[in-house]
């Protein structure tokens, strides 16, 4: 009878389980402070620049979007200017590279942890999570120390006489990339681990038994099994990385600006809020596109089974 009672809906049996309105304050709060900011950005992106640059003037215009594609000379002549599109594209490229590098590093470690004895696993997973729970600012700062001309890497290389002059690593695209990978690595390892942990490694043994090599087992048996984790990891790395501010700011040294730095500048020194809002809308559009792509891939590849992986970092 246990099975029937578990599947039967209950009217009176709901006693004490609360009611949906318990969630109402939270929902109202989130509408105000999550939906609100998104809506205001879209609105601002169609308004005019304020005189002093802080805030907006409530006059409708598409000027911010025009600025995305064209630059205007002093004489008022419009010419196509791909600067901002280039930055958007670069940001997406950085995010993609970050996601792919994280993926390559994460698959071995996630599978390795999943194949340890159970009592080790929780401890190892905890070790992966700790960096995630420490300040991103400090973790980015750490690479300033490591990559600078007097830093431990250059010092070690000079000591071994491999180089006589320090290699300039800080304030390069390389530094930005390292910072991004470092920031987002746990977001890739944990969802893949969540998939790998559920995988029954006896299936791999069965495959060996049928004469498969290690590489075949990995490619044909293990990797398909962790696909939901890979997809969840790609979402959790690619999209947030798109809006990275700290790594390009502190490690790229302004030379490798990403879109977030340009947006921040519009709300700071450049004082062009509508244009900053328009750039943010572009980021949101790319986010949506990426989500749609992942949703399609997800449906095809995993029948939608990534929910658990998406929540795995908690």
């Amino acid at each position: 009878m246990a099975s029937t009672t578990a599947t039967q809906p209950r009217k009176h049996g709901r006693a004490g389980q609360g009611s949906w309105w318990a969630g109402l304050p939270g929902i109202l709060f989130l509408i105000a402070l999550v939906l609100g900011p998104l809506i205001i950005i879209v609105i601002y992106s169609f308004l005019s620049r304020a005189k002093l640059g802080v805030g907006v003037k409530w006059i409708f215009t598409t000027q911010p979007y025009v600025e995305l594609f064209y630059s205007e000379s002093l004489s008022g002549e419009r010419t196509f200017d791909p600067t901002y599109l280039q930055i958007l594209f670069n940001s997406a490229l950085y995010s993609l590279v970050t996601a792919v590098v994280c993926l390559v590093l994460s698959i071995p470690i996630a599978i390795w942890i999943a194949t340890r004895p159970p009592q080790w696993r929780t401890a190892l997973v905890f070790l992966v999570t700790i960096p995630f729970w420490t300040s991103l600012l400090i973790r980015t700062y750490a690479w300033i120390i490591i990559l600078n001309d007097n830093g431990p890497i250059n010092a070690a290389l000079e000591w071994t006489r491999l180089i006589s002059e320090p290699i300039a690593m800080l304030y390069t695209p390389f530094a930005t990339s390292v910072g991004l990978v470092y920031a987002f690595l746990p977001f890739m390892i944990l969802p893949i681990y969540a998939s790998a942990e559920r995988f029954d490694f006896r299936l791999a043994e069965a495959a060996y038994d049928l004469g498969a090599t290690r590489l075949t087992v990995l490619r044909r048996i293990v990797l398909p099994a962790v696909r939901p984790g890979v997809i969840a990891g790609m979402i959790l790395v690619f999209i947030p990385a798109l809006g990275s501010y700290l790594a390009p700011e502190l490690l790229g040294g302004g030379k490798t600006s990403m879109i977030a730095n340009v947006i921040a500048a519009q709300f700071g020194a450049s004082r062009n809020w509508p244009f900053g809002a328009a750039l943010s809308v572009m980021v949101l559009v790319i986010t949506m596109l990426a989500l749609v792509v992942f949703a399609v891939v997800n449906r095809r590849a995993t029948k939608g089974g990534t929910r658990q992986e998406l929540e795995s970092f908690l």
């Binding site: 989130l30 402070l33 900011p37 805030g55 798109l242 990275s244 980021v283």
Partner: peptide, 22 residues
């Protein structure tokens, strides 16, 4: 609504909140 702040790039959320509050 709950998960959006985890997915949306933080910069968008940050300047959106700034704009809203102003």
């Amino acid at each position: 609504l709950i998960m959006a702040p985890l997915i949306i790039p933080e910069i968008v959320f940050a300047i959106g909140t700034l704009a809203l509050f102003v």
